[in-house]
Amino acid sequence: MHISEGVLSAPVLLSGGVLTFAGTAIGLKKLDYDRIMSVAILASTFFVASLIHVPLGPGSVHLILNGLLGVLLGWASFPAILTALLLQAVFFQFGGIVVLGVNTFNMAAPAVICYYLVRPFLKEKKYRAVAGFAAGALSVFMAGIFMALSLALSDSGFFSTAKMVVVAHVPVMIIEGFITMFTVTFLARVKPEILFGKDSDPVSQ
């Protein structure tokens, strides 16, 4: 999911940077004191997740977990993903500093979208598992689409790239769907305040 340096054109890089800046500003503004550490912990989860290679077939894919971040953090996914990607670029040479804006937006925007789309359903026990799975899978799918879009805006055709990226990430979507589902249902049981805020009563969940 990391676009390398030297692939994208300047306007795409610039608009990615601007969008990421805006998203990060909103995320930091909305971030309240009590949630800072959970943001940091999830940022490190994201940072490590992409090192976990799942060997499938001839190659291996790595986890992204932007859906989980989105559902749990909302707009704070932007600063979390930005920080994690910056460190990945510095330490592991994944992506790069110049493409940081675009890469952050591609992964954080789906997270925020999932936050608005899926989070309301998490409150109800009936839908929780399905909603969790949907968040995990959908966010990877959307990240693939965003990535294909940014490549298409730079040069290559959209549909061929989108097909290639999305097909390659189908296994990741399924894996992340399950991971997000398990995490969300588990959190709802043991630490519901992370999901529903402080005032929620664990007994009623």
């Binding site: 190659g59 790595h62 592991f92 296994p171």
Partner: peptide, 14 residues
């Protein structure tokens, strides 16, 4: 089941 699917996976860099 998936592990038998032939798909081109992604790595971080080439």
């Amino acid at each position: 089941g998936l592990s038998f699917l032939p798909f081109s996976a992604h790595a971080h860099k080439i």
